[in-house]
Every structure is written in C-alpha cells, then in structure tokens.
Amino acid sequence: MEDILRPIYQERASQANTLGVLMIEKTEKALSITDTFDAVLLIIVEHADEQVFVKHYTYGSKKAALHIVTKKQINDWILMGSNRKIFEWLYSGKVLFDRNEYIQQLKHELKEFPFKGRKLKMGIEFAKLIRRYTDGKTLFDNQNYFDAYNHVVHSLHHLARLTIIENGFHPEVTVWNQVRQMEPEIMKLYEELVQSHEPLEKRLELLFLASEFLIHSRTRLGANHLLDILADKEVWTIQDIIQHDELKYYSVDLSILLEYLIDKNIIAIENVKTKGKGIEHRYYKVVKKI
C-alpha cells in the first residue's frame, strides 16, 4: 500500500510546513481504527487554513484516506481525548517522514506523559465526571431511570479514564481493559450496573452510593489543576475563569465543577455590591487547598 500512496505523501513531505507523515493500515482486529479504510495517511503540518483536511481515494478494490492535521489540532486531541484513534495512529502508525524527529519526540511525550499535562487532563475528566454524575442523580431523583442509567454509564467511563490518567497512562480505545488491571473496584461497579439482574432502580441506587465515595476520594486529584490556577488571584469573576488559557478546555463542565467545589467548602463565594438594588456580583475564591 505504501508504494501506491507514495506519490500522494511525497509531494507533501517536500514542503517545509510538513512535520511528519504516518501510514496506518487496516487490521482485522481493529477495523474501526481506520474507519474500515485499507490505509490512512496522517500528515501533520505546522500551520494550515483548516485544522483538519480530509481526502478519500480508491485504488482498484481498495480505499485510502488522507488526513492533513495541524500540530495544534493534534495537541488538542491528545489533551482533550476527543479523538481516541489518534493515540492508535501515533502508537502503531508506520513513520514515512519525520522532520527534525518531530514524531519521535511526540511519541516520547505520549509515553512519558508529563505531569503538567496529566493534571489538566485529570481536571477535564473530573469535570465531565461531576457533570454526568450530577445530571444522572437529578434524573434518578425524578424517577427517570433509563435516562439516569445513560448518564451513570458515562460517569463510570469518565471515572475509569480519570483512574488511567492518575496512573500515568493515556486512556485508549479499550478503556475497560486498562481499568481492569488498575482499579478492579471500578470495573466491578460497571459490571454490576450492566449485568446485574436487580431492578434498574435498585442498581442505580447502589451505584450512586458507591460512586459518591469514589468521586470524593478523587476530588483532590481531580480539582488540583483548577485550584492551582485559582490560587494565583484573591478573587475571580466567572468570565475571568472561563477565558483563562487552560481553563477554557473545561468548556461547559466548568460551572458544574465550581458548584461541586463550593458545596464541598473548597471554593467560596464572595458577593460584591452592584449599582442595582439588592443585586450583587458573584466572585469566587479558593478557601481550602486539598
């Protein structure tokens, strides 16, 4: 397949903007990694008008995909975990071109997983966990058990991902295979939720009780990144928090995480008078480092 695709990637490799080229070939055990294409060419570039540009090709009975992706987009995918295939592509892809050992260094960083990157990823996963758990609990309390079940499954998934990151690894496509070795207790919870013959209401009730303890025990790790940043100033407006270069990655889950930490007396609210009668600005400050 490489010989067939060579004319496509050689032209790109000669351009100064190109940092690296990888080829990922389809295997019977992991068809989804290439979206069933026989091969995927991943070309990483320094800059481009579009963060991601995709082309599809056919050659006889075979099909191939070309993905031209900026360095920034690759970093965002790795940070956010929003494209889990990228880990497989980087881990198992054949390097066809590597300018100044960019891909080799990227693979090394993935393997080493620097602690600063881990802290941010743990914060993002913890915020998603709190969102799913809170929404699921609300639905459960309103007796919407099937919708609550959906949120609980997702909350366990985020808890599993958080555990993997805590252990110094990137969550991959097969998250539960990773968790089975690292945290059997979470795996057991997941199995009880999806395999138990107890009524759904009873399964959810027991799981909420167990999850509350597991979430509480990970609050220090999960909130550490956010609290470190908020400790830099005495008080913050919500707009200041949202616009912070690192906190913007928390996206829509940031407010629910703040409310959770307020409820735990880790973050406090400071009210400041406005010109409007009876209306006050709501500011936030760290009261307890954990």
Score class of each variant (00 low, 15 high):
166 E>P: 01
110 L>D: 01
165 I>S: 02
272 V>I: 14
279 I>M: 03
181 Q>L: 11
74 I>Y: 08
272 V>T: 08
104 Q>M: 06
284 Y>L: 12
23 M>D: 00
85 K>W: 06
22 L>T: 08
201 E>L: 08
133 Y>G: 00
38 D>N: 15
102 Y>C: 01
116 K>D: 08
152 V>D: 00
29 K>A: 12
255 S>Q: 08
4 I>Q: 10
23 M>S: 07
234 E>A: 11
39 A>D: 00
220 R>V: 10
162 L>C: 05
55 K>N: 10
188 K>P: 02
209 L>D: 14
35 D>K: 13
233 K>M: 07
72 K>L: 12
63 K>I: 05
71 K>V: 00
177 N>W: 04
183 E>G: 00
60 G>Y: 12
176 W>F: 11
202 K>N: 05
265 N>I: 09
184 P>W: 09
177 N>P: 00
50 E>K: 13
77 W>F: 14
284 Y>I: 08
90 L>H: 05
107 K>H: 07
119 K>N: 07
92 S>T: 09
135 D>I: 14
9 Y>Q: 06
195 Q>I: 06
137 K>N: 07
281 H>P: 00
124 I>V: 15
250 Y>P: 00
78 I>V: 15
214 L>N: 05
231 A>E: 11
31 L>E: 12
22 L>E: 09
113 F>H: 09
48 A>I: 02
60 G>K: 15
285 K>E: 05
139 L>G: 01
166 E>S: 13
242 I>R: 13
125 E>S: 10
146 F>R: 11
209 L>S: 14
1 M>G: 07
60 G>N: 11
147 D>H: 05
214 L>A: 12
223 A>L: 01
25 E>F: 05
282 R>E: 14
269 I>N: 09
114 P>V: 10
172 E>G: 06
197 H>D: 14
205 E>T: 05
16 A>V: 08
115 F>I: 14
185 E>Y: 09
242 I>Q: 14
175 V>S: 10
81 G>P: 03
268 A>L: 12
136 G>Y: 04
23 M>A: 12
69 V>Q: 03
14 S>R: 10
53 F>D: 10
15 Q>R: 15
16 A>L: 11
148 A>Y: 04
57 Y>Q: 07
265 N>A: 14
41 L>W: 05
2 E>Q: 13
28 E>H: 07
78 I>A: 04
85 K>T: 02
253 D>V: 02
217 S>E: 15
42 L>G: 03
267 I>M: 03
103 I>S: 02
89 W>M: 10
136 G>H: 01
106 L>A: 11
